[in-house]
């Protein structure tokens, strides 16, 4: 259940970012994060933690969208570059084990999706 600790970090920084956008902070429609596959995040667990932790915040009800980044690497022997759906982390081209992992550990808040505020004039029509 590392998902809970990850959700805690996420909620903290997402709230900080929302506060930068206004007072009171806007309520986002969606929170987009990127996560490396090696973190083995269970989305349902992350959703549950996110829901619990955001109950009384502007993030309540926001949709959590996860973009999965596969484990990827570079082969030191033949220069192959690509991703691994699962181990072994060997070069699929030359079978060398001299592969440096270059992705798969990412964990960051990518963006916040905010509903546009419609400004309404005296007559009631949208400006």
């Amino acid at each position: 259940m590392h998902e809970f600790a990850i959700a805690e970090g996420l909620v903290k920084i997402a709230q900080e970012e929302l506060r930068k956008l206004g007072d009171p902070p806007p309520k986002p429609l969606a929170v987009h994060i990127a996560a490396g596959a090696l973190n083995q995040i269970v989305k349902e667990s992350l959703d549950l933690a996110f829901e619990t932790l955001t109950a009384d915040t502007p993030l309540a009800g926001a949709c959590l969208v996860l973009r999965l980044i596969p484990a990827g690497g570079v082969c030191a022997k033949c220069g192959w570059e690509g991703s691994f759906p699962k181990p072994p982390f060997f070069c699929p081209k030359c079978e060398s084990a001299r592969v440096t992992l270059t992705s798969g550990r990412e964990l960051y808040l990518e963006s916040l999706e905010i509903e546009d505020v419609l400004t309404v004039d005296q007559t009631g029509s949208v400006l």
Binding site: I6, G9, I13, E17, Y108, L109, S111, E113, I114
Partner: peptide, 12 residues
């Protein structure tokens, strides 16, 4: 309609 605010911030 909605707009997107790019953030790119380390969760941990």
């Amino acid at each position: 309609s909605a707009h997107t605010i790019k953030v790119y911030r380390d969760i941990l």
